[in-house]
């Protein structure tokens, strides 16, 4: 099981993400430079937070055209696990791998603080280690996190269970008061229809050690590890079955 963390010019949470996976969780991780189109050997790809390409034009708009994104798109289309965190989420939205877009925060401010998000679905590779409705305390740090999509898309997201995380109060109530950026329907993160590509504005890698106030972000990273372990045991099972005549 090997994680890949993409490094764009301007990524600044790449090392935090590497630390959470390698040091805190003890999993193999390598960086992938944005010019690389070779991502063979990776089982999950994480697009980290930061300001890829200076956020020029729109957040994620230029990063989307980098060589590594051609490989990531192919990887995603073939069922590989891809998680976008903050700026990485914005890149996934711009690339069309996830539905919707982000606008400037409703208050126009860069908001950097812990928020509470509720896990809306636990039947995904990114949330399987969570309890249904579990509230996670995870920090955000962004200017453009105000999630938006049209009514038809919102309807589809609801119906297909694609709204993965919502901003809520510490006890799990959804209200405008606990929405830090004006996001439509309090949406903090979404997943694609095929359920192998997800993105969220909060930073799970910054909530990976209780020393840093919260380790709730590990729920998401551990879910990915569980999912990869299951995939590995299934594929071992499948290859054994191929060799053993029925």
């Amino acid at each position: 099981m090997k994680f890949g963390v993409v490094v764009f010019p301007g990524s600044n949470c790449d090392h935090d993400t590497h630390h959470a996976l390698a040091t805190v969780l003890g999993r193999p991780v390598d960086f992938i430079w944005h010019q690389s189109e070779d991502i063979a050997g990776f089982d999950a790809i994480i697009l980290p937070g930061g300001f890829a390409y200076g956020d020029y034009l729109r957040t994620g708009a230029i990063a989307r055209f980098s060589p590594v994104m051609r490989a990531v798109t192919k990887f995603a289309k073939s069922g590989g696990l891809v998680l976008g965190i903050c700026n990485g989420f914005q890149v996934l939205l711009e690339s069309g791998l996830l539905p919707g877009a982000v606008l400037r925060n409703a208050g126009l401010r860069f908001v950097c603080r812990h928020v509470y998000i509720r896990v809306e679905h636990t039947d995904t590779p990114f949330t399987r280690a969570a309890r249904p409705g579990q509230v996670l305390k995870i920090p955000i740090a962004h200017s453009d996190g105000n999630y938006f999509c049209d009514d038809a898309t919102l309807h589809d997201l609801e119906r297909n269970g694609q709204i993965l995380f919502r901003y809520v109060s510490p006890d799990g109530r959804e209200s405008a008061e606990w929405n830090p950026n004006g996001a439509l329907s309090n949406i903090a993160g979404v997943i694609n229809h095929e359920r192998n590509v997800a993105g969220l504005m909060p930073h799970p890698e910054r909530a990976a050690e209780s020393l840093l106030d919260s380790a709730d972000g590990l729920v998401i990273l551990r879910s990915m590890i569980d999912s990869l372990a299951r995939r590995e045991s299934q594929s071992v099972g499948a290859s054994v079955a191929e060799r053993v005549p029925a």
């Binding site: 606008l103 400037r104 925060n105 409703a106 208050g107 126009l108 105000n146 938006f148 049209d150 004006g182």
Partner: peptide, 14 residues
């Protein structure tokens, strides 16, 4: 331009 259906917080502030 932002679509008419989209809130434009910067325009509003201006």
């Amino acid at each position: 331009m932002p679509k008419q259906s989209v809130l434009d917080p910067q325009g509003k502030t201006i």
